[in-house]
Design a protein around this nucleic acid. Structure first.
Length: 861
RNA sequence: GCGGUCGUGGCGGAAUUGGCAGACGCGCACGGUUGAGGGCCGUGUGCCGCAAGGCGUAAGGGUUCAAGUCCCUUCGACCGCACCA
């Protein structure tokens, strides 16, 4: 064994050997419980960043540990390879997106190998390969056949800079997610996937995901956004059709004082055309269109509206109320029209105040006002000044102060019904039910459920994506390409101008085809798919990545799915994970996926920060993994990144910390080398212990440290993925081994055995250096094939233990007792001890509480 | 505004879920080794105090024999959604 630890040499040696031996290849038929561990595949942008290193290091530790525990582990990697950056590079530098992407993949694949991540590269997938997107197209056709893919003309989000359509999800604060440009609107014929048909299941099944982080589930639930309420029909005076609205507060139906339509509502034109309100309405709507989504979406935008000269009639009380159009009502939620109850809705209230509209309270807080006097240290009596009376001025108010109107405040909490005819006096929660039943009886409306989730707009006017395998025929309409003709290949003869419609229109041959149904001349769809489709099923393909006949074989997908552990960034908490769940459920429904949830356990890893901020080019604080791998080696980087913080938390990059990890590896190296050298000089001896009475004790201590470490590391990796504490346990063990060796008295075979155990439990974190040491210790096979060491519970038990002695809950002293005492024995022994007598100073002992192995609390006086 | 996560030494972070707060590492100080530096080995390191001792987990209150952990109030940070009727 070399005296000096040479990371570069060792890492190259072992990476080469692992590859030669095909050590990471997964064999379906191998023994062991199958375990599917997956990290989110990257977009091949060029180089790995620290977030990737963290993500894949976490996965690799788990994968290597599980292999040693005897599992048959599937640990694959691939590329989310379609997308805009490749196309932008093509426009800018004239490189074909395919070339650019493949170069990047090669670069990043090499980097992953340099990190020593144990992937089965024979299952590698790239979403831009025809043998992969063939099946993405196939899935699309299955959606179409199931009636879940449809085309619709719609005003869509249009980024004038990227010149493409964006899904709602890709619009952040009204700006393009990629370039930050304000998003406008454009009317286009677009393909949609009917994810809303799965909204209820996607929501319900969140409950089954017990091993997902709570915040991710909450975010998904909020995104799906289920609400319950009622739809109610209002007659419009002098108009044939009824106006249907959606409300979550049917209890406030008697408080309606006006109605609002979204400016895009189909009734607006017929209601205003030909009258005195036609011109103002057109002007109002025109003005709104100039507003981009940044302003339109802003909650702080002042409410703006226009009376359109018409009146509606409230079905429950016959009240005649004016109809407005306003910027605060959205066409694509509910029915695009609302009943306004300014007394009990802050938005309606703001609007009513601005336009001087009537405000009628129908829910009275009454005695149900939050009781501000409950806290005894409150500011004096604050209760019972009447229904709208005062309350603790410092406490949270259920009222929002207003300016005018009969009731100058808005009340949004619960209370008792007033001004609501036969429903007066009811608790408003009960009134929701009662009034819903009432309107159903009378045929005015019905109970109703609404979701915020919208159908998924998947068309992109871009080149570098999966072609949508649909053909338009004059006679047959939209017809899917025949499945045996898949894939519909991306044409290569296209021009990248970065402007206008899809680049596919510039291909001479692509568009013209024959109708798959009738054979007549027909045109292909020229849009490509949102890349989120590509990544919504890749985890299924890994189970049978080279299958050319079928998307994946039943037996293989059944063996591996669902993914046992998925690891990736929180930024995918909503979209990617929701879409992946949607696809899995659909493939389950049509009989292809055995699982209907894709990921059993989810770990969302924290970001890697520098100086407390996210690493970014614009801040100039990006730390390149390459540089550090070169300087310290992959093992050091992996160890640091896993040690510095628990995986789900943010991680602050620290060069000093990296140096510390490097130092630790050197410390282990010297220990291993020293222990080996001890043995070499004493080969003929039984042991080199000194035979003194302390010797046995020293060896016992070493064994204790060893077994404690094995136990702790196994629990931390196998359970909560607390790699940071696992590593600190190994460090404690190393410190103990140094002490044992320096102190003498430990026989060489015992020390050697301890070091071997150390190498084994450290190997998932720093595999290269551990392989090297393992070999130096005379082993020929890879350490990855070694079983994880068992620990001896007996070695963890000591003859006696130190117990803290508390007096009235404060630690005052310590005393030593034999191990294994019960709580009662411990308490009795403590109470009778000299130590206790001294500390209590003769005060009467009220009681003593013992906690075995920890402390005794003596309560006096 | 709504929803969520979280506040522990100079720093990153531990604390078996109610039982000795600060494990482990970084940093710092001192000692040893060394021609010197680096490296390595060792010791110390929450705060106040010479000490005895006292105080300490954002602040305030509560429950408990016992609270970083549970409950209430306040403050602060971060993340997600955001005119969703």
């Amino acid at each position: 064994m070399n005296e000096k630890y040479n990371a570069a040499e060792i890492e190259q040696k072992w990476q080469r050997r692992w590859e030669q031996d095909g050590l990471f290849r997964t064999d379906e038929d191998a023994p062991g419980d199958p375990f599917y561990i997956l990290e989110m595949f990257p977009y091949p942008s060029g180089k790995l960043h620290m977030g990737h290193v963290r993500n894949y290091s976490i996965g690799d530790v788990a994968a290597r540990y599980l292999r040693m525990k005897g599992h048959n582990v599937l640990h694959p990697m691939g590329w989310d390879a379609f997308g805009l950056p490749a196309e932008n590079a093509a426009i800018k530098n004239g490189i074909h997106p395919d070339v650019w992407t493949r170069e990047n993949m090669a670069e990043m694949r090499a980097q992953l190998k340099q990190l020593g991540i144990s992937y089965d590269w024979e299952r590698e997938v790239a979403t831009c390969s025809p043998d992969y997107y063939k099946w993405t197209q196939w899935i699309f056709i299955q959606f179409f056949k199931a009636g879940l893919a449809y085309k619709k003309k719609n005003p869509v989000n249009w980024c004038p800079s990227c010149e493409t359509v964006l899904a709602n999800e890709q619009v952040v604060d009204g700006a393009c997610e990629r370039c930050g440009t304000a998003v406008g609107k454009k009317n286009l014929d677009q393909w949609y996937l009917a994810i809303t048909k799965y909204a209820q299941r996607l929501l319900d099944d969140l409950e089954r995901l017990g091993d997902w982080p709570g915040n991710v589930k909450t975010m998904q639930a909020n995104w799906i956004g289920r609400s319950t309420g009622a739809e109610v029909d209002f007659e419009i005076e002098g108009f044939g059709e009824k106006l249907r609205i959606y409300t979550t507060r049917p209890d406030t139906l008697f408080g309606v004082t006006y109605m609002v339509l979204a400016p895009e509502h189909p009734f607006v034109e017929p209601l205003t055309d030909g009258g005195e309100y036609e011109a103002p309405a057109r002007e109002f709507i025109g003005k709104l269109q100039y507003l981009n989504d940044i302003d339109r979406a802003s909650a702080t935008l002042e409410k703006d509206g226009l009376f359109i000269g018409r009146y509606a009639v409230n079905p429950v009380n016959g009240k005649r109320v004016p109809i407005y159009i306003a910027n605060y009502v959205l066409m694509d939620y509910g029915t695009g029209a609302i009943m306004a109850v300014p007394a009990h809705d802050t938005r309606d209230f703001d609007f009513a105040v601005k336009y001087g509209l009537e405000i009628i309270p129908v829910v009275d807080p009454g005695g149900l006002l939050p009781d501000a006097t409950q806290e005894t240290q409150g500011d004096g009596p604050t209760q019972g000044d009447g229904p709208f009376g005062s309350h603790d001025p410092k406490g949270p108010s259920p009222w929002v102060a207003g300016l005018k109107g009969p009731s100058p405040r808005v009340f949004v909490a619960e209370g008792r019904m007033i001004n609501s005819g036969r429903f007066d006096g009811l608790d408003n929660k009960d009134a929701i039910r009662e009034i819903t039943a009432y309107i159903e009886e009378r045929g005015f409306g019905c109970g109703s459920v609404n979701f915020r989730l919208r159908d998924w707009l998947i068309s992109r006017q871009r080149y570098w994506g999966t072609p949508i395998p649909m053909v338009y025929c004059e006679k047959c309409g939209w017809v899917p390409e025949k499945e045996e003709n898949l894939p519909v290949l991306l044409p290569t003869d296209v021009t990248f101008s970065g402007k206008g419609e899809s680049p596919l229109t510039t291909s001479a041959s692509f568009r013209q085809t024959a109708c798959p149904a009738c054979g007549a001349p027909a045109e292909r769809e020229i849009d490509t798919m949102d890349t989120f489709l590509d990544s919504s099923w890749y985890f299924l393909r890994y189970t049978d990545a080279r299958n050319e006949e079928r998307i994946f074989a039943d037996g293989k997908v059944k063996k591996w799915m669902p993914v046992d552990q998925y690891i990736g960034g929180v930024e995918h908490a909503i979209l990617h994970l929701l879409y992946a769940r949607f696809f899995t459920k659909f493939l389950h429904d049509i009989g292809y996926s055995p699982a209907d949830e894709p990921f059993t356990r989810l770990l969302t890893q924290g970001m890697v920060l520098k100086d407390g901020k996210k690493m970014s080019k614009s801040l100039g604080n990006v730390v390149s993994p390459e540089e550090f791998v070169e300087r310290f080696g992959a093992d050091t980087i992996r160890l640091f990144i896993l040690f510095a913080s628990p995986p789900e938390k943010e991680l602050e990059w620290s060069e000093a910390g990296v140096e510390g990890s490097y130092r630790f590896i050197g410390r282990v190296w010297r220990l291993a080398q020293g222990a080996l050298a001890d043995g070499a000089g004493a080969e003929t001896q039984e042991h080199n212990g000194d035979g003194s009475p302390g010797a046995a004790e020293a060896e016992k201590e070493l064994l204790h440290a060893m077994n404690a470490a094995i136990k702790k590391v196994g629990a931390d990796i196998g359970g909560r993925y607390n790699f940071n504490t696992a590593i600190s346990a190994i460090m404690e063990f190393v410190n103990a081994a140094y002490k044992a060796r320096e102190g003498g008295g430990v026989r060489q075979p015992a020390l050697r055995d301890a070091v071997e155990k150390l190498i084994l439990i450290l190997s998932p974190f720093t595999p290269h250096v551990c392989e090297e040491m393992w070999e130096a210790y005379g082993h020929t096979g890879s350490i990855l094939l070694e079983p994880w060491p068992a620990y001896d519970e007996g070695a963890l038990v000591r003859g006696s233990e130190e117990i803290a002695l508390q007096i009235n809950g404060k630690v005052k002293g310590k005393f030593t007792v034999p191990s294994g005492l019960s709580a009662q024995e411990l308490a009795d022994m403590a109470a009778a001890s000299e130590e206790a007598k001294k500390l209590t100073g003769g005060s009467a002992i009220v009681k003593a509480i013992g906690v075995p192995g920890r402390l005794v609390n003596i309560v006096v006086k």
